[in-house]
């Protein structure tokens, strides 16, 4: 893991996520998550010059919506919820899958487990975002007399539910991989020699499977982003949807302004000539997924680089210095021949 800071893909991804997180928290701490507004602009004579929506780089860096709200600050505000929410779902589901899947891999061929797997296979047919939407709908859409629950409670429940939905396929994958490794010959002989669970786990499973676990964690994070984006498009925003039951009909608005919910909020404008309102949050979501991939690839590369595969003492040792009684001497002879 020494060279991890020299991996360009890791560095790029890490910098993107870190900058977004720091910016988001700074915006929340020092500016109280305020969204600047530009309702109108005037030229030097005091004449009306322009009215929102402004295109990107026109008046603010990422443009504004119809009411003049600066999109950039919405993105900044939502960054912490998007990034931390996705990572929380991914880590929680990975952890649960780990705790369930690995012991399942040790105990193979249990009738109950097979039936369970069959029931779980319904997830192939019914999309996880559909289940999540149906399950969370009463909790997440604001009722007529306001939310009875707090934002933290709703976020916690949503994270747990999404994580639970992602657990079964991951746990089954982990169980299968574990039992594959445990079936290998050298592992069986290790068992014969008295190796028990913890020993097998530390000496055989971790070295064999750590890369595949890393990929699995990435997959869980990507799946979490996907489900959160789906829910955002269905106007079930992360942390709850604010609905106004007033005289004036207003579209539902998000509370946390995570990137998926910005897409859902502005979807109605797709038919108009304001592509940046949807394009910008989409771009940030894609950048987020790409930086997750970059970070994973970087870690994977540095894991491979730091593997003590080759014994470098062979190369350093000169043939004449080697003791002929040493086994290594024969190795050197063979190599030089």
């Amino acid at each position: 893991m020494k060279h991890i800071w020299k991996e360009p893909t890791f560095l790029l991804g890490f910098v993107f996520i870190a900058v977004m997180l720091i910016g988001s928290f700074a915006h929340a701490l020092f500016f109280d998550s305020m969204i600047p507004k530009t309702p109108f602009t005037y030229d030097e004579n005091g004449q009306l010059e322009g009215a929102p929506p402004f295109a990107p780089f026109d008046h603010s860096i990422l443009g504004t919506d119809m009411a003049g709200n600066h999109l950039f600050f919405y993105i900044l505000m939502g960054a912490k919820y998007t990034i931390l929410g996705t990572l929380a779902v991914a880590l929680l589901s990975f952890g649960l899958a780990f705790v369930i899947g690995i012991p399942l891999g040790f105990v193979q061929k249990i009738k109950f487990f097979q039936g369970f797997e069959q029931v779980i296979s319904v997830m192939y047919f019914i999309p996880a975002s559909l289940i999540a939407y149906k399950f969370l709908k009463p909790l997440m859409i604001e009722p007529y007399d306001g939310f009875p629950t707090t934002l933290a409670f709703r976020i916690t429940v949503e994270v747990i539910v999404l994580a639970l939905l992602l657990v079964p396929p991951a746990a089954i994958l982990m169980a299968n991989e574990t039992s594959e490794v445990l079936k290998k010959e050298y592992v069986t002989s290790s068992r014969v020699l008295g190796g028990r669970g913890w020993h097998l786990f530390r000496n055989h499973l971790i070295p064999q499977l750590k890369e595949s676990w890393l990929r699995l964690l990435l997959m869980q994070a990507i799946q979490a982003t996907l489900i959160l984006t789906h829910l955002g498009v269905f106007e079930m925003f992360f942390g709850g949807t604010h609905v106004v039951y007033g005289i004036v009909v207003e579209p539902p608005s998000p509370i946390t302004f995570d990137w998926a919910s910005i897409i859902g909020m502005y979807y109605d404008t797709i038919m108009t000539n304001m592509p940046w309102l949807i394009g910008v949050p989409l771009l940030f979501l894609v950048l987020f997924v790409l930086s997750l991939i970059g970070i994973t690839n970087g870690i994977q590369k540095s894991l491979r680089a730091s593997k003590p595969e080759k014994d470098h003492s062979f190369e350093d040792m000169e043939l004449k210095q080697a003791d002929p009684s040493d086994e290594k001497w024969f190795e050197l002879l063979k190599r030089n021949a």
Binding site: Q118, V119, S121, V122, F125, F135, P138, P148
Partner: peptide, 14 residues
């Protein structure tokens, strides 16, 4: 499995 999914909304309330 489908039955479990279909009754799942009954387990949440406001």
């Amino acid at each position: 499995g489908i039955f479990l999914v279909s009754i799942s909304p009954m387990f949440t309330s406001v």
